[in-house]
């Protein structure tokens, strides 16, 4: 099986995990999670150098991933578990009392793979900049990967970090903006959006790239190009077009599934669109 096909199979299983987690507890954020399944699968199963069996907070000599839009925790937990940070069976505890899989990712319960609590939007990029600084201090030339939401760009702290990263030449950071155009109350353009995200980052001095975040082959081609820019003195942003709800037809093209769990009938209908894989459900 080619890398791309293997990763597509894993992404399908990740989507099944997302729906099952959210359905089990009738709570969580399936829409954005489904949209990010391909990119996070590509990162955790192919692109990132990381060490799931020996997780360290410090992440010396390995790549780092920071999920700034922490509400898409179901996709994050799925790729962490499936890549070996913790048992896949633990996905069944998502959002339950006494679980390490908190509603939004947190370090407090000691879940391997999570390095900072996120979900209060706008904060993850700053933390990632701090990790990128530390890597430079430690002469560690690995990469800090970040995902932020597009609605999240409405937070002022994002632009503090964008300015800082450019001024301080944090070229060991690749930020993917999850450009799905949706947020809780509707379309980002209606609420407080701008249609050209890339030019904003470019004007701050970032290297801007574009990618279809739901096209595995494009992801696999783009990230090595982004990495190749490391050392050029500019942080890299990838305006990553995704479809909220990707993989489940009735969850796509709307913000309705941002933070809503499917009922039994909807769950069956959704799962029927995502074929079982040899990896098996949790």
């Amino acid at each position: 099986m080619t890398d791309s096909n293997r990763l597509k199979t894993i992404a399908t299983q990740v989507r099944r995990d997302i729906l099952r987690q959210v359905y089990n507890v009738q709570s969580g954020h399936p829409g954005g999670s489904l949209g990010l399944a391909d990119y996070l699968t590509a990162l955790y199963f192919h692109l990132m150098k990381h060490n799931p069996s020996n997780f360290t907070m410090e992440a010396r000599n390995e790549d780092v991933f920071i999920l700034s839009n922490g509400h898409v925790s179901p996709v994050f937990y799925s790729v962490l578990a499936r890549s070996g940070y913790f048992p896949v069976s633990e996905l069944s505890t998502f959002r339950l009392l006494n679980s390490r899989l908190q509603g939004h990712p947190a370090t407090h319960e000691g879940l391997p793979g999570v390095r900072v609590a996120t979900g209060s939007l706008g904060q993850g990029l700053s933390v990632a900049c701090g990790m990128a600084l530390a890597k430079k201090l430690n002469q560690d030339d690995n990469t800090v990967f970040v995902v932020t939401g597009d609605g999240e760009l409405q937070e002022g702290q994002i632009w503090e970090a964008v300015m800082y990263a450019a001024h301080n030449k944090l070229d060991n950071m690749i930020v993917a903006v999850d450009f799905n155009g949706q947020q809780i109350d509707g379309s980002t353009l209606d609420i407080m959006g701008f249609d050209e995200i890339g030019s904003k980052f470019a004007s701050f001095g970032w290297e801007v790239m574009y990618m279809d975040g739901n096209n595995m082959d494009e992801i696999l081609a783009t990230i090595p190009q982004a990495r190749a820019k490391q050392g050029n003195g500019k942080p890299v942003v990838i305006v990553m077009k995704t479809e909220m709800g990707m993989g489940v037809d009735f969850m796509m093209g709307t913000h309705a599934w941002h933070g809503k769990a499917p009922n039994a009938e909807q769950f069956e209908k959704a799962m029927a669109q995502l074929p079982e894989t040899e990896l098996g459900d949790f």
Partner: peptide
């Protein structure tokens, strides 16, 4: 710079790295 929110995040990231 005059960006205290970012400073706290940077500090959190630096602390994460030890």
């Amino acid at each position: 710079g005059i960006a205290e929110a970012n400073m706290m995040g940077l500090a959190a990231g630096l602390a994460t790295a030890g």
